[in-house]
Amino acid sequence: MRIAVSHTTSYRSDPPSRAIQALRLVPPGLRSQKVLAWELRVEGAEAGLRYTDAFGNQVALAASHGPVAEVIITAEGVVETQDTAGVLGFPAEAVVPAVCLRETPLTAPDAAIRAFAVSCRRETALATLHALLDGLHEAVAYQPGTTASSTTAASAFAARQGVCQDHAHIFIAAARTLGLPARYATGYLVTDQAQAPAHHAWAEALAPDIGWIGFDPANGQCPTERYIRLAVGLDALEAAPVRGVRLGGAAEWLDVRVAVQSQSQK
C-alpha cells in the first residue's frame, strides 16, 4: 500500500520561550516499508543537526534562536508498505537485543503483570508473544481519556483500561519478565474510522531466529500494510516523535493535523 502522510505538530508558548526538541519523525527503511519521499520541516527553530541514534532512529534536533511564540513541525512524505505479518527481521541498529530487557520507570512490572505474563507462557517465544497480544487485547479496554503520558504499565494494567501507549507498555513489561526483549514503537495507522487518531503506538518483541516482530495489543493484531513505523525505544518517553524541554514560559503542545491517506497503487 502506498501511504501519504502529512503530520503537523505545533508548540505554542506564552510568553515566548526558548524551544528545544529532539524529533524522531523520519521513518526508516524496513522489510515492511520503503520510504519513497520524506521531508521534515521546522518553522520557528533551526533543525539542521541530524544523526542516527542507538536504536537506528534518525533524530533531528530543533533549537530556536532565543524565545519564540510558536514552533511548527511538519513531517510529510510517501511510504510504500507491505504486510509482513509484523515481522521486521533484524534492522540495522546499534543496540543489542539484550538491552531491550531493561526496565524503565514506565515499564516496570508489578506482581499482576508478572502473573499475567506467566499465564501467557507457551512452548515457543512466538506463541508466547501471540498469547500476550491476545490476552492483553482482551484484558485491557481501549478507553481514551483515562490515562496520561506518564501513566505506568502497572497502573494502567490495574485499571484494565488505557490507550495504545498503555497497551504497548504492559505488553513490553510482560514480555521482558519472560526474558523476551521488547520495545516501544511509534508510527502511523491508516484507519477507516475518520475520528480515530492516525498517530499510533505499539510494541516490538524479539523471537529468536525470526527477529523483531510488531505487536499491536490495542488492536489485537500484528502490524499490517496499514502501518508505518517511525521510531523505537525502551518506552514511550524514549521513542517519542517529539521530545521537548520547556525553557520558561507556559507552553503547550498541540497536534493540529495528522492526515494519513492510502494512495491507489498501480
Binding site: A54, A98, L101
Partner: peptide, 25 residues
C-alpha cells in the same frame, strides 16, 4: 566480550551504569 561468554550479558546490558544511548557511537 559478552558473545565470547567472558562476562554475563545481564551484568552489562542490565546494569544501570550502562547507557544504551551510547551504543554504536
Amino acid at each position: 566480550i559478552v558473545r565470547a561468554g567472558r562476562i554475563p550479558s545481564e551484568m552489562v546490558n542490565g546494569n544501570s551504569a550502562f547507557l544504551p544511548q551510547m551504543m554504536g557511537f
